[in-house]
Design a protein around this nucleic acid. Sequence first.
DNA 1: CCCAATCGGTTCACTATTTGAACCAGTGTT
DNA 2: AACACTGGTTCAAATAGTGAACCGATTGGG
Lengths: 248, 248
Amino acid sequence: MSTVSKAVSLLELFTLHEPEIGLSDLARRAGLDKATARRLLMALAGHRLIEQEPKSRRYRLGAGLSRLARIRDAHFPFVRLAAPVIRELSLETGETVHLSEFSAGALLTLHVELSAKANRVNVDVGQVLPLHGTASGIAFLAASRLEVVSAYLEKPLQAFTAHTMTGPETLAKAIAFAAASGYSRSSQGYEEGVHSIGAAILGADGQPVGTLSVASPVSRIDDAIAASQGEAAVRAARMISARLTGEG
Amino acid sequence: MSTVSKAVSLLELFTLHEPEIGLSDLARRAGLDKATARRLLMALAGHRLIEQEPKSRRYRLGAGLSRLARIRDAHFPFVRLAAPVIRELSLETGETVHLSEFSAGALLTLHVELSAKANRVNVDVGQVLPLHGTASGIAFLAASRLEVVSAYLEKPLQAFTAHTMTGPETLAKAIAFAAASGYSRSSQGYEEGVHSIGAAILGADGQPVGTLSVASPVSRIDDAIAASQGEAAVRAARMISARLTGEG
DNA sequence: CCCAATCGGTTCACTATTTGAACCAGTGTT
DNA sequence: AACACTGGTTCAAATAGTGAACCGATTGGG
């Protein structure tokens, strides 16, 4: 494993729920020696990717990350353009809607608008979703080139619940449905009790760059509602695609 | 130099004006061998800190950075905590007030509250300000460790207007004033006709993390007004520092 | 109150990772 | 067609990374 990888995996230990971590803890969780972890942290701190709280001596993510993220977001304003559309879709459907970007073989959750209802699906920004087993993933695959799809389906696929689609035929059918209708549907494929509608967002080259997804408690969904959510999701995804390619 | 440092310095080559860079270019500018640069980029890409545009094969900052930055910002909400204080200061002084964060040798404008007056100073979010020549910068230097200051002053300093302070003695005097009074004063050092009062905002470790600045048309300012703006700026900066360190 | 078990941090002999010159193949330019 | 670039790869040599053992300072349970 490369040193760089080890350093970055230290950064990845920080989460929304645990934004400050001590040295020993970091080392343990990253599977590194304390001395190694400390050296890596110092290197990261030198570039402001890590900061240390002087009182508690615990470490946290640094300002340099905000800077780099600003540079990226200015150039690739996916979230900025999509957020209002996501919000609108959340209000229209009354459900939680989230936006994901494809990166390194999976979907990374970038933005979430939670439903106002008490009984709602909660999704966290930063969550990584697999391409199979989520409505978003199926929608993404349906919009991808065939070679990408078959390459992905060749690998063994993990089942997350008893409902996760892992068989090639089952998946092919779901992908075909998404390709035909523009939206995908997944019931409890990733988490029990959660129903999702997904739609792909296309970049300027026509290739999918990410997805959006409407997530509801399965108890609230029937075929008619799913279909109306699907149509709304497709409209929203097209709107974002248009904005991305400069038509907005 | 550590491998981690080299990898991060690759990330730091990307800017708002140049968000995509090719391999050879990256290697050249970072002073690394092409093979080395590529290996580091691949390691970074594995964690989504870098992405590669498949067509042009050029590299750009990755989505993982946005994810990490969001985690940091949720926990260390500089802008969120400072914004109401900035607004209050703007109302109190009747002038434009802006908030900056130190990053990579300069001050990055994060937030602006514009004056309600017709004749006012306009500042843009995202603007990068040099440490010399702006009141914010002088205030920042005055709060920094001596070694940081002397390292900065050793480099040749650009003059932005006929009034820009570039001489070491002049700057030392301005820094000494800021250190003594808590606020700095700069008249037309960065832009003609603009008078600024700056004050440093300190992090939990007592080191400055950023600044705030009151900017007025020079025609509205006399020594008494400047002094009262200075005191108000110091109060506001202290308030934000206190909030940042968890005392709010 | 004390002892044991943490904590953050440091050292240095050992070793595994990183390095870079030389090498592809491909793509414009002249 | 020759040239000067690109991005990408290889492998022996050299450098940077590693971790067990060690601090002194806190912390918390008995």
